[in-house]
Design a protein around this nucleic acid. Structure first.
Lengths: 150, 150
DNA sequence: AACAAATAGTTGACGTATCAACAATAGATA
DNA sequence: TATCTATTGTTGATACGTCAACTATTTGTT
């Protein structure tokens, strides 16, 4: 098994695994009326006690500002997120979970976490640790390819 | 470092890595006028000497039939893919690369492959092998969670 | 203070993805 | 054969994602 064959295989499997995770996680979110992107928003907001601006949220999710607009529009109509004016900068919208949004997030997060534990159950810590290191290395490699453009 | 912490970390890193790959690969495809989805179509067709029906292509790419329609519409207008009538079943459209499509695919594939080799360069075979095994196990685990619904 | 950047958010155009509903065709069965 | 069922591809609605262009602000410079 040549090294480059394994390299191709590895990158392919990373993509395939992420794709399966995404698909299966959608099945979990759907009954709660949530999409995967919306769950990520609730989660990011739950982890930011002081709230986030839309730009900050976009940075956290690695998503364009323009995408955040629609995402929050929809989450506002469902009543899970609130936009409030920032007192010190009239351009920014401060985002926060509503109580209902926080409850929903906690409920879904617990289920999601339980599934992750189940999915990961067959793996021993050293192997997982190696896998994480390999993934980090792949991320660094991908970014290193990116940077030379500068 | 508890096992469940590593489990959460692992799944998060899988998603993050796939996301970075996707973003960076788009940078590679763009100058050739290709999107990531379109590259995947060209690749699937290049690997199927007898051509594929739209349903078969959807199965290979794990996307909905309805998505294939638009994908092929666009690739037909750029002249990289051709739809032909299937003689034995008037419902199906047989898909094939045009010569230009095949040339484009080969050109882009070569570059893509070179980048993958570069990205993977810092990793030794045993670690990659472990990572692939872990990923396969995660896929199996995710699907195992899926199946119990039946 | 006045003017020139830079930044926050929105909009519109487009590509990709899903789902549900539909027409045309094929296949199975009564 | 006539009918019922399944399958192929298309369409329309909705969501997500990008980019480029725009407005309203802020900040920085002269």
């Amino acid at each position: 098994m040549s090294a480059d064959y394994t390299g191709r295989l590895l990158t392919r499997e990373v993509m395939a695994t992420a794709d399966i995770f995404l698909r299966e996680s959608r099945r979990l979110f759907k009954p709660h009326g949530l999409t995967a992107a919306q769950y990520n928003v609730l989660n990011a907001l739950a982890a930011a006690p002081a709230g986030l601006s839309q730009r900050e949220l976009g940075d956290v999710l690695v998503v364009d500002r323009s995408n955040v607009t629609g995402l929050i529009d929809r989450l506002e109509t469902t009543g899970w997120v609130r936009r409030t004016a920032d007192p010190s900068d009239r351009r920014v919208h401060r985002l926060a979970l509503t109580p209902a949004g926080r409850r929903l997030r906690n409920r879904v997060h617990a289920r999601y976490d339980a599934v992750v534990q189940q999915v990961v159950a067959g793996l021993d810590a050293p192997r997982m640790h190696t896998a994480v290191q390999v993934l980090k290395s792949l991320q660094a490699g991908a970014r290193a390819w990116h940077l030379p453009k500068a």
